[in-house]
């Protein structure tokens, strides 16, 4: 009982924080006190004050405004990357797990080849070919998570496909397409939803990492990773330049993780049984 309550609390807390971050991201242009790209030469590295609650960065830009705008980019990139990956992974895993045989072999081998490349290396290669930017970062992150999500979908599809109601539905005259859409997919989707919400946390970190390296969102557009890169040289003199975007990352990652862990407990039968 208490476990169930704490599971719901986790999901609710995760969703609440994400909703808040989402509102901030969408409303950034209206709630940000300053233009995130406006320079204040006199106030360079000014400490937090009433006028600038998070202080000013090395170029004299308002850190609070930049964090608010950064959230926009970071959430957009990480959520759309995971969404793209999920949209591609679900049909692939479904086909591989349901039809098996050569369909499975072909899809699984292709996914394996994507998996053997180290994530960061793959992202950097893709960016080297297509050039840096948020859109390319989104695509790169999606490509990294596609094989992981497709495998999860394939495994849960295998389990559901083996159940009697799928065989029964076939025997009751349902076509493959009908069985896939109305029985297999809805019952196999749970683990992928869980995995996707957990991966969103990693996607956010990955986007920050790419921007930190200058491969993601390009300046002057503010991004959490880019801000971390800017602040690292002045960590001692002006720690607020580093601390606030760092905190934003921690909060967003924590929210995604809470949601993912909560969902995992709901979908994992062992978790519910206890």
């Amino acid at each position: 009982m208490s476990r169930l309550r704490s599971t719901n609390a986790m999901i609710l807390a995760g969703l609440a924080v994400l909703a808040l971050l989402g509102v901030i991201a969408v409303a950034a242009p209206w709630i940000a006190p300053y233009d995130p790209e406006a320079l204040d030469v006199m106030g360079v590295m000014g400490p937090p004050s009433l006028a600038h609650p998070f202080g000013l960065d090395v170029l004299g830009r308002d850190v609070l405004s930049r964090v608010l705008y950064s959230l926009r980019v970071s959430l957009l990139v990480s959520i759309s990357a995971v969404a793209v990956a999920t949209l591609l992974a679900v049909p692939l895993g479904l086909l591989a797990g349901y039809f098996g045989r050569w369909v499975d072999t072909a899809i699984s081998r292709a996914l394996d080849m994507m998996l053997v490349l180290p994530a960061m290396l793959m992202a950097i290669t893709l960016i080297a070919i297509l050039g840096p930017g948020s859109a390319v970062a989104t695509l790169a992150i999606a490509m990294i998570y596609l094989p992981i999500l497709a495998r999860v979908m394939r495994t849960s599809t295998l389990v559901v496909t083996g159940l009697d109601y799928v065989a029964g539905s076939r025997a009751r005259g349902a076509s493959h397409l009908r069985v896939l859409v109305s029985h297999v997919a809805p019952n196999a989707l749970g683990p992928v939803v869980v995995q996707a919400s957990v991966l969103s946390a990693f996607a956010l970190q990955l986007e920050a990492g790419l921007s930190f390296l200058g491969l993601g969102t390009q300046p002057p557009t503010p991004s959490l990773g880019g801000m971390l890169a800017d602040g690292r040289d002045v960590l001692i003199q002006a720690p607020w330049v580093e601390i606030f975007p760092g905190l934003a990352i921690v909060i967003a990652v924590l929210a995604f993780t809470l949601l993912g862990e909560g969902l995992r407990r709901v979908f994992d039968p062992r978790g519910v049984a206890e």
């Binding site: 109601y165 065989a167 029964g168 005259g173 019952n187």
Partner: peptide, 30 residues
């Protein structure tokens, strides 16, 4: 003309469907 009945009454019906819909499925498909 040939229909199955399986062992596991838990596994032979889609948990997400009301049971009437499972019975109706054959009528729809055929």
């Amino acid at each position: 003309r040939v229909q199955p009945v399986f062992q596991d009454p838990f596994g032979s019906l889609d948990p997400r469907w009301p049971v009437g819909r499972s019975v109706r499925e054959a009528l729809d498909c055929f």
